[in-house]
């Protein structure tokens, strides 16, 4: 951990309670995915997308936003982002069970496809990169109206091969929009490793082509990610334009519940990567710095477990969408 306790408090403005909250959100993200993975294997949830390994990148970056004020365009792996911005475990589980009350889509999209106007989390699709120009347009609207909202847009490294990534970043640079682009680079686009996706060593290098800052951070270090995002958000708010942040992570699970990563990744590689797991790493940091003790740690874990149990039981008992509503919301009423 690069950031010491003293720096966390004095440079980043984070106190012990803030740090414990980040830890709680990382644990919650891990626990919800683990539960959904189980529910998917039981056939109760029809589809899941793993986020294990991305928790520090997601919680650290989203903590730098003003929830419900700054705009966020997550991609499908961003469970930790939406939890940090205020989506409740019950709301997340309604999405997983595709129930009528799912605030993301009322069961219309596959699980893990986010969107909630209350939290300014913008609805997204499955084709990758399409949300990037949206983020530029949203930020442009803020700039036109002289509002200080910042728009943060997430995606994986495979997405940086798409035209909309290039078009979006170029538009953002030319129009100087208050946008922060965050790439969670886990090294694989489903099965295709980074070296088959691009020749450059770091996604952040791509920023040079648009004339904007590009930074690479250790995405397993929640405070490093927080610091880099906060810098970029403050820069955007000052009217200095967009930034590209690359958070280097590793996806411990398969791409989705329909994927078998044993076909393309050696078990040894995955086990080696797990040694850098951001959740125990942050726990250790907090214990050593005194922001957490064993008793509090157990308390946080019990709370997470109880919330996941409650959300699961609650969501499973909620009604399915009504077939009569299949034609609703095609056009304006």
């Amino acid at each position: 951990m690069v950031v010491g306790e003293r720096e966390a408090r004095h440079v980043l403005g984070l106190g012990a309670a803030d740090l414990r909250r980040m830890y709680y959100l990382m644990l919650l993200t891990r626990a919800i995915y683990q539960r959904v993975d189980l529910l998917t294997r039981q056939g109760k949830v029809l589809f899941s997308l793993s986020s294990d390994g991305h928790e520090a990148a997601q919680v650290g970056s989203a903590t730098a936003l003003r929830p419900g004020k700054d705009f966020c365009l997550p991609y499908y792996r961003d469970l930790g982002v939406v939890l940090t911005l205020g989506m409740t475990p019950r709301e997340v589980m309604l999405n997983m069970f595709s129930r009528e009350g799912d605030p993301n889509s009322g069961g219309r999209q596959m699980p893990f496809h986010w969107g909630c106007s209350r939290l300014r989390i913008i609805t997204h699709s499955s084709p990758v990169a399409t949300q990037i120009p949206h983020a530029v347009g949203i930020a442009l609207a803020s700039r036109i109206r002289d509002e200080d909202d910042v728009t943060v847009c997430y995606f994986g490294e495979g997405t940086t091969s798409k035209g909309d990534f290039h078009e979006g970043l170029n538009f953002a640079a030319v129009l100087k929009t208050p946008t922060v682009f965050i790439c969670e680079n886990n090294g694989y686009a489903i099965s295709v490793p980074q070296h088959k996706q691009m020749v450059v060593a770091d996604v952040a290098q791509r920023a040079q082509a648009y004339g904007i800052p590009g930074v690479t951070v250790d995405g397993l270090d929640v405070l490093e990610v927080y610091r880099a995002t906060l810098d970029a958000v403050q820069r955007a708010r000052r009217g200095e334009g967009p930034t590209l942040i690359e958070a280097r992570v590793y996806r411990y699970g398969a791409h989705t519940s329909n994927d078998d990563d044993r076909r393309y990744r050696a078990r040894e590689e995955v086990e080696e990567a797990r040694k850098g797991d951001p959740v125990p790493r942050f726990r250790q940091y907090l214990l050593e710095g005194g922001a957490l003790d064993e008793a509090t740690d157990q308390e946080v874990k019990r709370r997470v477990e109880a919330e996941v149990d409650d959300a699961t039981e609650y969501a499973e008992a909620q009604p399915h969408p009504d077939p009569k509503d299949v034609r609703l919301h095609v056009l304006a009423p």
Binding site: P133, H134, V136, G137, L140, A141, E167, G168, F171, V174
Partner: peptide, 28 residues
């Protein structure tokens, strides 16, 4: 120029940015 924007030559970007403007209260 805030309301009449000469964009880069990129149709997907034009429509995508327009969608974003619309999602944040403008009428593109």
């Amino acid at each position: 120029e805030h309301r009449v924007i000469d964009t880069p030559l990129a149709e997907s970007g034009i429509v995508g940015v327009a969608i974003g403007l619309s999602l944040n209260g403008m009428v593109p």
